[in-house]
Every structure is written in structure tokens, then in C-alpha cells.
Amino acid sequence: MKKIEIYKVLSNKQLTKDIYEMVLKGDGSWVTNPGQFINIKVTNKFLRRPISICDWSEASLTIVYKVVGEGTSWLSGLRVNDEVEALVGLGNGFTLDDKHLLLIGGGVGIPPLYGACKQLVKMGYKPTVILGFQSKDDEFYFEKFHELTDKLYVSTNDGSLGLKGFVNDVMVKNDLCDIPYLTCGPLPMLKAIYKTSTQNGQISLEERMGCGFGACMGCSIETKNGYKRICKEGPVLSSEELLWTKD
């Protein structure tokens, strides 16, 4: 159900130099799938800021966001009890229909996979997780994932934590290329996973959005099954429908 909700900030914590975790008090009952998102009104900006749900309960939402400009910078300055207006009930999210799934997150693409991981564990499954960061200083949520699964791998571009290299290097090295996957992160990473895996995956994509709820066609991309609005039919698309190439 799409609607506008007012949330109250319960906490707003800095996790790394530019990554923040905000817990919001308010309706979380609309969330049906991990990977859905909310579109937050930020002060003095014309458009809202789409941010994926990291975790949720009946009466709360957790978002983990990166400060990239004035809008998210404003968000990072909010204090406990401040109010946030958000358009909620947006996006399709991940479908958790497979027993054994590989979850791969890169940087600020990691948060929606935390929600997916938590749900899968609740369902009695033990997902395998790969987290990719630029460097050790950018790491967040490793401990939180570790509480959910011991099948957890990390890579950093500079080798300061885990394997030196990219998440797809972790896949190859640890024989994880034959497991259906869920992923979110920077586009080059998503494409590398697409090429490396022998399986189909669910890929969460990012686009600059106008409305965020399917009206303006600002975020449409072409797929094998016609056009898809990232905000409405996405953000999660099946790897099979993307017009990407394996080579």
C-alpha cells in the first residue's frame, strides 16, 4: 500500500565516514519484501530521496544510507525525535523462494540484503553472504551479518579486510558461482556478478527517479520483457530479463 507516513527518529548513528543508520518509529507493516524502498522528503529539495529498507518491524523501519549530497547530509543531521515524511510502500523487493541463496552486497548496496538475510534465517535457511567494501574503514554491518550466518565472506579493493579484490573474486575462489543470488551494489559490481555466476539472480538496480511510484517514467529501462520502471516493477529485476551480456 503506497501512502505518506510521518516517522519519528529513534536513532541516527554514524557507521563509517559517510554511512549512517537511522531507525524510524512508525508503520513498518506495509513492508512485504526486503529490497523495497521509501522516498524521503528532505528539506529544501524538490524531489524526494529514495532509500532502501534495511530492516523493519510492525512499528519501525531501519534505513542505512550514504551521505552523497545536500539531501542525505540533511538527513544525517537529524536528531532523536525529529520527524521524517516519507512516501512508503514502494518497489517490489526480493523474492525469497529458494532455500539456498547467495547474498552479495557492495557498499551502500548492502542494507537491503541484511533484511533479506534476516528473513531467510527466520524461514530456517542459512544464506551465504559476500560483502564488498572499498577498504577496512568502509566496513559496516559485518558483525550483524555474522550473528545471522557463519557463511560470511568479505572482500576489499585494497585488501585491508578479507580478500583483496572484488566480490566476484570471492565467488570464484570459494566455489560460489553455482548458487542463485540476490545482489545490490554499484553497477560494475552487478555486471561482474552477472558474468561470474552460472545461475540466475535477482538484481536490485538504481536509477535517478522522478516520482518514485510509477507515474513519470523517469526511471524506465528496457528489458527482454519490455520496459520496466525501476521504482515500480523494480528495483529488483531478474537477471534473465536484463539486456546485459555474459562476455
Partner: peptide, 30 residues
């Protein structure tokens, strides 16, 4: 929504850029 004789996908993304007090769109009559 603007209708053309033939179906149109429109332009590649990014199609949206936020501005002070407004936005730019280049949807291209999808």
C-alpha cells in the same frame, strides 16, 4: 500521457536531474 502513433520507449536513463525548485526530465515520450 503523451501518445504517439507507434509505441515509444523514449530515451536512455538517466532521464531525471533535480534542480533548485524543479527538475529536468528527458523521458522522451515513452
Amino acid at each position: 500521457k503523451g501518445t504517439t502513433l507507434e509505441p515509444r520507449f523514449g530515451n536512455p536513463t538517466p532521464r531525471i536531474a533535480e534542480c533548485e525548485m524543479g527538475m529536468i526530465n528527458a523521458v522522451g515520450l515513452q
